[in-house]
Write a protein that binds this DNA or RNA. Structure first.
Lengths: 178, 178
DNA sequence: GTCTATACTTCGATAGAC
DNA sequence: GTCTATCGAAGTATAGAC
């Protein structure tokens, strides 16, 4: 039974992600999502039976994209830490968008919060395996996260911007001295 | 005209802060605030004429407590950076509570967002003046913020916990080598 | 100064037409 | 499969009694 890869469903999820990002954590209503997706609330509720089902649809998409990224990070020739620090390669991707949207959901959805926690743990483990120094892995992760946070929330790099590569050099230089 | 230091107003603000923290970014209603404060919604709306006025009341309190803390941080004998890194002295204070509550408001209130941004800038400037190294000040701030974030949101220190004092030693050791 | 009662709005969800 | 119409719950705000 050949069936259209139903794009209405995907359009609705796209609209949901967009609105979650734009509304910056405030509530996103089914009416808004339906309007943005070009359907009515009734139409939306045909595809996603309830608000909760819509949330779950987003989290499923997040999980898929995140898993793909873990694999890329682990296999990165430049190493997991350097891969993680390349914010320019992350910003603007579908993964980033779904990630932000999932973060917005995390306040009222336990599964979303779990997925975000799980992601942080996996990122740390990969960077630790790469650098072989838990303290350095931890510091690097915190710094990259913080820089991204400033970039993402304030909309511009905090002044002065930190050169992560230079920071890593400075930190790595201290390893031999222990 | 001696007038009671009207504590109903303060009780309402206390309840508002508590509920904002507990509800972790979800909506806090006037009914909930009123109930927690031991007044009715009508009573609440006598003291704070609208939802927006209640928000403003919280932000005024934040601004006052934050300004007091800036002064302490600048005058700290151990230096601004070390003062900033002492999370144990911050966690559990009224300042922390109001700070979290203000952060919750920042999503839907522009003034709250501005106050948070302003606080970050002041913290950075004080640490930079203390350390005399913008890159180190920036890294330290990001790391302390990140550790606090994990502590506050996940409820426990991320494993492994980073020793900020040791980190500062390692980083400061690299300064002479530039 | 604080409470009760209620009006108005918004949101999620259901029923049923098409 | 998508839309219209509408319900019920929850939220903010107002009017007026006490």
């Amino acid at each position: 039974m050949a069936q259209h890869r139903t794009s209405a469903r995907e359009s609705i999820l796209d609209a949901f992600v967009d609105l979650l990002i734009e509304s910056n954590g405030a509530g996103v209503t089914l009416d808004e999502v339906a309007k943005r997706a070009g359907v009515t609330k009734g139409g939306l509720l045909y595809h996603f039976g309830s608000r909760k089902v819509l949330d779950t649809g987003l989290l499923d998409r997040f999980e898929q994209l995140a898993n793909e990224d873990y694999a890329r990070m682990e296999a990165a020739p430049e190493g997991a830490a350097t891969y993680y620090a390349k914010l320019a390669d992350y910003i603007g991707t579908d993964l980033e968008r779904v990630c932000i949207a999932t973060g917005m959901l995390a306040k009222r959805d336990a599964r979303a919060a779990d997925l975000v926690r799980q992601m942080r743990t996996i990122h740390f483990n990969l960077m630790n395996a790469d650098l072989g120094d838990p303290m350095l892995a931890r510091a690097t992760m915190l710094i990259v996260d913080g820089m991204y946070y400033d970039l993402a929330t304030i909309g511009e790099p905090f002044t002065p911007e930190l050169d992560v590569a230079a920071f890593l050099s400075r930190m790595l230089a201290t390893k031999s001295g222990r």
